[in-house]
Write a protein that binds this DNA or RNA. Structure first.
Lengths: 120, 120
DNA sequence: CTAACTCTTAAAGTTAACTTTAAGTCAATA
DNA sequence: TATTGACTTAAAGTTAACTTTAAGAGTTAG
């Protein structure tokens, strides 16, 4: 099934100009009708899902582009791509760890405020 | 114990200009010598630690400022401050959840790449 | 058939959070 | 005493990731 730019954007909570921006940055290239209108295929949607996943875990547009450039280069880059995902995996684990540490600080502060609240 | 701007910055992995920037934004105000040199007290350092915690969990400089403005207003704002922390707590939990979902996707991709790697 | 809507492009504008620069003062060392 | 290095200020510059604008073309409803 195919999607218009509006439908594709909506599916991932993005705006159409954002998809055009991604395209300009070289990380997405849907086919176009003779009159220049973009058509997003299932494959494009899968790619866009990966873009959102990498973006949500802190990868820059530039590095996401680098990943898709490697994909386009074919099987010779499989190991390098695997390495990118291994790195991203570690990066995510570190982010979760940092958030949990800060959550503990916040919880501590909440406990303190609750105490203060009772005294009041 | 007191800290120079350099020492204070280093303790939190920041640069001196960043601390001056925070000060300009109204979220930190160390005392100064007669000649204008900043001196960070333990209390300033505690405050800076909270700035880093809130920043690391996604709060904007503007909202961090708002929190410290409430602190400066005294006990009447305790409940509002507690609410800020409760919200931030939920925000952190949501971030962790999102990261975990994306981690699962990445792990899936890694498994796929490892399979492909073996076939090669 | 015309009005309203959605698409197109290229380019300029926005925002947050710094970061750098320029010009200068102050403290300590050779 | 001269110079080196850390501090100061205000203001301009940077970067990423959009977002908005302007001008125009194709599509659909009445």
């Amino acid at each position: 099934m195919n999607y218009t730019i509006r439908q594709a954007a909506e599916k991932f909570g993005l705006e159409p100009p954002t998809l055009r921006y991604y395209e300009k940055e070289g990380i997405l290239s849907p086919r176009k009708t003779e009159t220049g209108i973009r058509i997003y295929s299932e494959e494009d949607m899968d790619q866009l899902e990966m873009v959102c996943c990498l973006k949500a875990t802190g990868m820059s547009i530039k590095d996401i582009r680098r990943y898709f450039d490697l994909c386009a280069q074919g099987d010779s880059t499989v190991e390098e791509r695997l390495e990118i995902f291994n790195q991203q995996r570690l990066h995510i684990l570190k982010q979760i760890e940092t958030l949990q540490k800060n959550l503990a600080k916040i919880d501590c502060k909440i406990a303190w405020y609750k105490g203060k609240h009772h005294i009041k």
